[in-house]
């Protein structure tokens, strides 16, 4: 591992970002969202606007469309979202080539999440970074604890079902070197438990990269977010706790502010 100085935040005033994530399948939000006052709770565009109004700092769409015939639906969703929502939009899912990235950016995405496509072909990271700049490339890591790799964390695919044997810490360092602009760190072990973020994982990745780290997986209460930031996350991402109205974006921000973190 390379020798790097400890990473500290350069400016005091940069706000911790709170990011809701919507799973989109065939142009519709999956995992039913219970949001009040929506005409159509399955419409990602309407939900995006609602989260924008609620104070979300960014939005993430994860396109989980499996059917090839329906793959183009995401472009329409992105384009319609960009009509009325003026905060950064990240779109991930199924991105394999520079052309995939180009189409999403042209539709109105600001950043593109890349996961399996970069594991299969790490050069993709550099290709995207050179063409569009590092800032568009969010490398998504689905990580699980695994004693067979040096850091104790391996990268998985297919929602955690397939272990790649790739060491997550090594992969994070390599991804930054290749030109990734940001890391979306999702703990497969913590995901869905609502028992809090995987803090040792966040700290382990934070220690080796200087690009922003978005922590994901495990949030169950407002009090789960400040420790993730203290462990080194620049941003926090959650899905169901927001969708099911367990807490609002504002609740999370109030909790972060109370713990001494800067929020927008």
């Amino acid at each position: 591992m390379r020798d790097r100085p400890p990473v500290t935040l350069g400016g005091m005033a940069l706000a911790v970002r709170v990011i809701p994530c919507l799973d989109v399948d065939g142009g519709r939000v999956v995992k039913g969202v219970r949001f009040q006052d929506l005409r159509d709770a399955g419409d990602p565009v309407e939900l995006a606007a609602a989260y924008d109004a609620a104070g979300a700092d960014e939005l993430t769409f994860l396109d989980v469309t499996a059917s090839v015939d329906d793959r183009d639906t995401v472009f329409d969703v992105v384009a319609r979202t960009a009509e009325s929502v003026f905060i950064p939009l990240t779109v991930g899912g199924g991105v394999r080539t520079v052309d995939d990235v180009d189409r999403l950016l042209r539709a109105g995405a600001d950043k593109v999440g890349v996961n399996t496509g970069a594991i299969a072909r790490p050069e993709l990271i550099g290709e995207v970074a050179r063409r569009f700049g590092s800032q568009v490339l969010v490398l998504s890591l689905d990580v699980a604890a695994d004693d067979s790799v040096p850091s104790g964390y391996t990268v998985t695919t297919h929602g955690g079902r397939t272990r790649t044997g790739l060491d997550a810490v090594t992969w994070a360092v390599q991804a930054e070197d290749l030109g990734a602009g940001e890391l979306l760190l999702n703990s497969i072990d913590a995901d869905g438990t609502k028992e809090g973020f995987d803090l040792p994982l966040i700290a382990a990745i934070r220690e080796v990269v200087s690009i922003p780290v978005i922590a994901s997986g495990g949030a169950g209460a407002v009090g789960d977010f400040p420790p993730a930031v203290a462990a080194g996350a620049d941003a926090v991402l959650a899905a169901s706790v927001f969708h099911f109205g367990q807490m609002s974006i504002g609740d999370v921000k109030a909790g972060l502010a109370e713990a001494g973190h800067v929020v927008r």
Partner: peptide, 14 residues
Amino acid sequence: RLSAERVPHMGWNT
């Protein structure tokens, strides 16, 4: 180049 240790500067600032 920005002289902060954590670069890029990504997010909301005043």
